[in-house]
Amino acid sequence: MFDDTKLYPLPSGGYLTARDLDKPPILDIRYLGIDFGGLRALTDFNLIVGRSEITGLIGPNGAGKTTVFNLITNVYQPTRGSIILDGVDTKGMSTHQVSRLGVARTFQNIRLFKDISVIDNVKIGLHHETRYQMPEALLRLPGYFKREKVADQRALELLSIFDMESLAYKPAGSLSYGAQRRLEIVRALATNPSVLLLDEPAAGMNPSETGELMENILHIRNTFNIAIVLIEHDMSLVMGVCEGIAVLNYGKIIAKGTPEEIRQNPEVIEAYLGKGVRE
C-alpha cells in the first residue's frame, strides 16, 4: 500500500501523491524556461501536478514564481520547454483558450471587475457555462431568462462557499481586501477549472482569516476534486495545506518534496526559510 501523505518521485523529476499515482497528471511541465532579453527568468523548471494535489510554490521575491503562473496561463510564451495540460500541449494557445481547457487563476495584485456587482463578477466566470446565443439575448427569448436564472443560482451557490451571498449585489470594489481575494477565488472557480492557480491568496490577511482560508482551500479541493497550485509567503498556510512543495530561487528549482522535507532542506533554509522556522 502507498502512503497517502507521502510523495513519490517520478523519473521526470516530479512528485505525486499516492492517490494520483495511477492517473495521468493534470499538469506536466518539462524543462520550462523563459528569457526576458538577456535575463534568464526561469530555467529547467520541471513539475508534475496530480489531479487532486495541492502544490505549493515558494521562494524569495523575484525568484520567478508568478512567471511560472504567467507561463502556465500563456500570458507569456515560453522560450524553452513545454506545458502539457491534461495531455494537451498548450504551446501557442492564447490565455482564454487555456482557461477553457481548465486553468483558472487569481492574481497577486487583485484584478477584479471593480465597478460591477459581485454576482456579475462571478457570472463573467460562468460566461461559457451560460449557454444562450446572441439572438436569444437580443430578442429576450425564453432561453435567455432560463439560462440567466440558472447562472444566478450557480453564482450564489459558488459565493456561498465563502458565505458571501449577502454581498452579491454590492460593487466588487467596495468589498474588504480579504473579501476581494475570496471573490477572485470564486470567480476562478466559476470557470469550472481542473487546475486552480492561487497567487498569494493569504496576502494581507490576518492569522484568523488565513486559518479560515486554509480550511476553504481544502474544502474546495475536496468538493471540486481539482488540483491547486499556490504561491504563498505565509509558511503556516503552505506547510498546512500543501502536499508537495517546489522551491524556486533565481529562476531555478532548488528543492522539491513534502513540507517536512522542505522544512529540513539546508539549501532552502539558506535561500529562503531562514533558521527560525524549524519549530
Binding site: 496561463t73 490565455t95 484584478r111 470557470t191
Partner: peptide, 16 residues
C-alpha cells in the same frame, strides 16, 4: 464590460 474593467482578468476568465 469585463474587458473595460480588466482585460487580463477577462482573458483569464475565458473571454476571447
Amino acid at each position: 464590460i469585463s474587458i473595460r474593467e480588466n482585460e487580463i482578468a477577462a482573458e483569464s476568465c475565458g473571454i476571447h
